[in-house]
């Protein structure tokens, strides 16, 4: 999983380092660039800070039995059965994403469900968005939770948790660096948590896949998302140009003189 590294400062545009590079003259130019017409940033549903705090408390209470079980001795483990909640959650990137993808395949009719392995589906997804670096890891979750939803009424709820929550969740679960937890439908003891999430957090909306769940799509074209970026371009040396001009003139005069001869 993503390491707990201090967040790197955003990279700057590379600058010339060697003397030779510095000598080259460059001018600033503005170049147009085409962005993705679909906005990716606003797809995460908003969570109010107070609600996020209470959700986090709920999660800690729910998950702590598993952490305690994992930390206990082998002898204790033989006597006590594993907490039941383990069967109802997915944690970690690979497990959760795979479960969601299978679910998406079944719900969208791409993959056929095996009747023997009809499993309850993931309905609630908790992600420590601000603790997981780089952002590329979490960038696809809104779309994935949208495609994995059963219908437009019962969607997978996506909840982003505030900074610092990954530490608390991984401690409660007893697994290092766990920032992603998916809850299955009908998880025992989590009814209050689900209720809190359902009443306070909006569904994920992915406007460009609108027809997927409802079946009817009104296609709207978005104007091209053009913007300018500031880059540099080399400055052409005027001396060289003059030289070229002279050469051209010379060759012209030669041609003329030849024609005169003839």
């Amino acid at each position: 999983m993503a390491p707990n590294k201090p967040k790197n400062a955003p990279k700057k545009a590379p600058k010339a380092s060697s003397l030779k590079e510095l000598e080259k003259k460059k001018k600033q130019v503005f170049k147009p660039i085409l962005d993705n017409p679909y906005t990716q940033s606003s797809t995460w549903p908003f969570v109010e800070p107070e609600i996020a705090a209470s959700i986090l408390d709920f999660l800690e209470v729910l998950l702590s039995p598993t952490g305690k079980y994992k930390a206990s001795d082998v002898k204790v483990k033989q006597q006590v059965t594993e907490p039941e909640i383990v069967k109802h959650i997915y944690h970690g990137f690979n497990a959760t994403v795979q479960a969601l993808e299978d679910q998406a395949g079944i719900n969208r009719g791409i993959r056929k469900q095996k009747e023997t392995t009809a499993q309850p589906q993931i309905t609630h997804l908790f992600i420590c968005k601000y603790d997981i670096t780089p952002t590329l890891l979490t960038s696809m979750f809104p779309v994935l939770s949208y495609t994995a939803s059963k219908s437009s009424e019962s969607r997978v709820k996506l909840v982003q948790l505030p900074r610092g929550s990954m530490e608390r969740i991984s401690k409660a679960l007893g697994v290092d660096n766990t920032g992603i937890v998916g809850f299955k439908e009908g998880c025992p003891g989590a009814e209050a948590l689900f209720e809190l999430v359902n009443s306070n957090i909006k569904d994920v909306e992915v406007p460009w896949l609108e027809g997927l769940l409802t079946g009817e799509s009104h296609m709207k074209f978005v104007p091209p998302a053009l913007r300018n970026i500031a880059t540099t371009a080399p400055v052409h040396n005027p001396k060289n140009n003059r030289g070229k001009q002279e050469q051209l003139n010379k060759s012209k005069s030669k041609v003329e003189s030849k024609s005169d001869d003839v």
């Binding site: 660039i33 962005d35 990716q40 994403v97 993808e101 679910q103 969208r108 994935l144 896949l209």
Partner: peptide
């Protein structure tokens, strides 16, 4: 020679040119 953002180009498969949508046309793992 129209430049487009890498974020735009990433969403299309380089081999079969299909749109990469998680859950539908692509799987992801670490």
């Amino acid at each position: 020679v129209s430049k487009s953002s890498p974020l735009l180009k990433r969403t299309i498969c380089k081999q079969c040119q299909s749109m990469l949508i998680p859950g539908l046309t692509m799987t992801m793992y670490v």
